[in-house]
Design a protein around this nucleic acid. Structure first.
Lengths: 196, 196
DNA sequence: ATTGTGTTCATACGTATGTATGATATCATT
DNA sequence: AATGATATCATACATACGTATGAACACAAT
């Protein structure tokens, strides 16, 4: 029947699959990798998610889905300046990434294919974009935000944290410098860039 | 550089493999996909590149390698203001992406894995980073560039074009708006963001 | 014509893959 | 104790994969 939220095996699969998909991608992760990392039987993925792709999509929804209501919340409030709302959104994205460290890898892999991203991403962005665009346009009316395509600004606001986060790891590999303890510094950097 | 009938088998393989790796990733692209797209025999990859991974690395070098001397060139010139050098670098990255539309996908897939990027990327960034850092530090000394970690700025400068380019495609899928003819607008947006 | 060298070809091999199947185990309800 | 729904398990199966192999071919040099 409908699998319970408290179902142990199901949770174990989701928990194990997340970092594997993030690091090795969809095609680079086998069901056997997932089930053996989760310590469950090979057939468990088929039992709970029918196919590997449905498992992946469920995970994607779990990872990017919660971002939409968070951003929408940041855009609310008639007495709050547009720029402040935007800054809150940037911080919300960073917060979300900190709580879901695999999110950048998932997102970026989805965008790397030239084809339409998977439904969970389309859906989430379909909610975020209009809310943010309205705020940006309002800010531009008030001359508090520089003129320019709102969509490009939104793109920057979302992409900036994602790429800073991914780049942080790459840079530490290249230069040996570790930004692990510099989360706040990176956030401030991104906020400064976006504000400007 | 479009391969015609007289082109070398080796070239045909590289030409066919490039967009396949970009769209489907390393694991999502089979040697059979590549050779049949290239119209060559299955064994040709083994003959010219020994393994699929060496073919991939050769391609990666071909795609990101030329960026290093270009950026280094942009950083040269004692009588040129640091900010101008940086702006030239941003435009150079966009130019390079326009000439190599698959570059963002390759780069981003490399960074998505939490592990060290492949050698061609490490090598290229190892050349770019010191040159740009010196210019940024010089600009900060002159109070022409805001204080902050030079590495983070470099990261932004490289990542910004890559992500704007990838995001452009995603946005057109989500909103239906096509930025195809808006290359200059996007470049100016990125330059403005970086300058600020 | 023969040789030698570089290239192309069809095909084979072992392994890994996603998914399906049917048996077995678990456990609340009767 | 018996039943029946749910979950776990080992295993089977067809296919796809990367790579290896050796024959066939092209063709310039002898």
């Amino acid at each position: 029947m409908v699998p319970d939220e408290t179902d142990d095996t199901r949770r174990k699969i989701l928990y194990a699959a997340r970092p594997l998909f993030a690091e090795y991608g969809f095609n680079g992760t086998s069901i056997r990798d997932i089930t053996s990392a989760a310590g469950v039987n090979l057939g468990a993925v088929g039992y709970y998610f029918a196919t590997k792709e449905l498992l992946y999509l469920h995970l994607l929804q779990e990872i990017v889905g919660p971002l939409a209501p968070r951003i929408e919340w940041c855009m609310r409030g008639d007495d709050i300046a547009p720029l402040v709302k935007i800054e809150r959104a940037v911080r919300a994205v960073f917060d979300h990434i900190r709580a879901n460290p695999d999110m950048p890898a998932f997102m970026v892999r989805e965008m790397a294919t030239g084809r339409p991203p998977a439904q969970p991403i389309l859906q989430t962005f379909g909610r975020i974009a209009p809310a943010m665009a309205a705020v940006i346009i309002e800010g531009q009316k008030r001359n508090e935000i520089r003129a320019g395509d709102p969509l490009l600004y939104i793109l920057s606001i979302i992409a900036q944290p994602v790429h800073l986060f991914l780049g942080r790891v790459a840079i530490s590999h290249i230069t040996g410098i570790d930004f692990d303890d510099a989360h706040d510094r990176i956030v401030d950097h991104a906020v400064a860039v976006v504000r400007a």
